[in-house]
Write a protein that binds this DNA or RNA. Structure first.
Lengths: 362, 362
DNA sequence: CTGTTAGCGCGTTCAC
DNA sequence: GTGAACGCGCTAACAG
């Protein structure tokens, strides 16, 4: 990776490296118009590309933004990544990507790697876990982040604060009202439906999942309903499918065949869209139909999934904007001359979106 | 972004920076066991994190892999990105992400940015364009890539070579048999269907789209069919939807109502799955049903879309593996002691996958 | 096996 | 306005 250096450009232009640096990058001092042209010409005759590593070393900042996701192929994270990318471009920075599968240990490694690269800021998307088995890793992650912040790094976390992280300078949380929204969803669902509810949740301890489960139960309670049973499974399509099979068996056993208007249908709430789609697929594979034999709702309103039929009831989350906000929170102060307190937490809002998958059938 | 330096660690351990470096990183020389422990202890008592920028400057290599995609939120690219990420991890490198929307000009900028960061290699996913309006940008992109390669950088391009790029050292192409596969799809479709075909293609000049269109027409010809009409539109869901509306109007006009067995149904080939889904949505919105009123096939076999009903006939492409292969091609020689010629082009294979969306109805 | 020296490429004080 | 020096943090060639 040898390329032409600033020194070479300077020599070719017959000036000192310092001068060349001043013209090729924005410096306070403006070199003479004539000499500037000479340098610029020399530069692109040599195909000069500044060495960002050296620049970073000298200026002690890298122009890099680190992004941590569970899985970039998951449409949820992909959407957030798009927002991060867009905001990064506005800040004229590049994004470094790390995928961790959600394991706190790997997240710690990713943070360390970003710190090593002297990333200007780090955005952590994806649910945190508070299971006891992750306790140690979480502590190390928190310590790593804390050190990163103390060294001047800026951090934004989507959804929940990192477990055990002390609120340090430069540490931002983009709050996602999972619990409230899940409650609202439960309320609207309960208004048009008087049967039983079941929740397909992720593994216990996954904060996002837990919040949505809790919120949904609260919403049910407010509507005077009994708490829903909770099925725990993996936080992805496969998990949803598995739970769907279980429910299908139960429906078929209890309902004594489908289409029986007297048999109470089940209303299923899967804590995210991808799980809901998995569950739907399972039901269908078992010969059940939605919303005839059961109704189902998800969460997130993943764009790619909007064309599914029956259209999935869900809670719309502005994923791309979430990524954007998180990134902006770590950037330089926004132009708005408004109250721009450093500790201010950007908040996003979602919207309950009822569609065909939870429609009452005649 | 000030952190503790190697020098500080060395001082605290009472050794020279060089020695500290040798123990903290894998060097040829192994320092004494006793002194090594002392250094290591000093290092993590200080929370030392090596400065990758400085390491890169000194070693003239960065441990970075640049990935260029049109849009990271597009499931096609997201899947490839997952493969790239996985391979990068195996090479103990990090990935730098750039999104360009497919514009050659922005791709050129991205390559320059990667070169500036001294990325060890660059993976370019996403279709190239050969429209005359992109000619200049393409030339500059080719020049930029060429220079990057000459400086020792390694490049892998998915699908097509960069237009106008001279086959330089370190320049790899992961060939995707779009044309052959599209032909095979046409063949299988023609075998079970004797009506008309229509193609929904991307803008003319998009190489991937063009290949698939061409291959499909060839397949039709081999089956003794007349060439299909081609609708040009945007290479995304919106484009598919738009074309779908057009076709819906035509079907309704020509068929004089749906379900008329005498009216020839149309078989639609959309050059990618996302467009096919868009077209399906449009048909449905117009009251038409698949496969009753028209049949449709896509290309890519996007994972997230597999749960759609009616299940979409398509061509399965190992997207994740494509990303992995491209990345590996730019990495150090693979372990296989086999013929490992540098210019060898990894090839992937796909598979025609017929599903319900193209089923003949009774 | 360890310490010393010399860069890697660039930004940034300083003098001129 | 311009050039010469130094330092960013680390590794690689040498001495010892």
């Amino acid at each position: 990776m040898a390329a032409s250096t600033l020194t070479e450009v300077a020599r070719l232009a017959g000036v000192s490296p310092a001068t060349a640096s001043r013209v090729l990058n924005g410096s306070a001092r403006k070199p003479g118009k004539d000499i500037a042209d000479r340098v610029r010409q020399a530069a692109d005759s040599l195909g000069y590309i500044p060495n960002a590593q050296a620049q970073g070393l000298a200026k002690s900042s890298s122009g890099l933004i680190g992004l941590i996701v569970h899985d970039i192929a998951d449409p949820y994270f992909a959407a957030i990544a798009r927002g991060v990318q867009a905001a990064a471009r506005e800040q004229r920075k590049m994004v470094l990507l790390a995928t961790t599968g959600g394991a706190p240990g790997e997240e710690r490694e990713a943070v360390a790697a970003f710190a090593a690269r002297r990333a200007d800021s780090i955005v952590i998307a994806g649910s945190r876990s508070c299971r006891t088995e992750d306790q140690d890793d979480n502590a190390e992650l928190a310590a790593e982040l804390d050190r990163y912040c103390r060294n001047g790094g800026r951090v934004a976390v989507v959804g929940h604060p990192v477990v055990g992280a002390t609120a340090a300078e430069g540490y931002h949380v983009v709050a996602v009202p999972n619990q409230e929204l899940a409650g609202a969803l439960a309320g609207e669902l309960a208004a048009g439906w008087d049967g039983d509810f079941v929740i397909i949740g992720g593994p216990e301890g996954l904060l996002t999942s837990d919040d949505r489960v809790r919120g949904f139960q609260e919403g049910l309670a407010r509507a005077g309903r009994a708490p829903a049973e909770i099925l725990r499974t993996a936080f992805n399509r496969a998990g949803g499918y598995e739970a769907g099979l279980t429910l299908a068996a139960r429906i078929k056993a209890g309902g004594k065949g489908t289409g029986d208007a007297a048999a109470p249908r089940l209303c299923i709430f899967a804590v995210n869209d991808v799980m809901a789609i998995g569950a739907s697929a399972a039901l269908r594979a078992e010969g059940l139909r939605i919303p005839r034999d059961a109704t189902i709702a998800g969460f997130d309103d993943i764009e790619t999934l909007r064309d599914f039929r029956p259209a999935l009831s869900t809670v719309r989350l502005p994923l791309e904007e979430i990524g954007r906000l998180a990134t902006q929170a770590t950037g330089p102060a926004t132009g708005s001359s408004d109250a721009d307190a450093d500790g201010e937490q950007p908040t996003v809002s979602g919207e309950v979106t009822l569609r065909r998958s939870t429609e009452a059938v005649a």
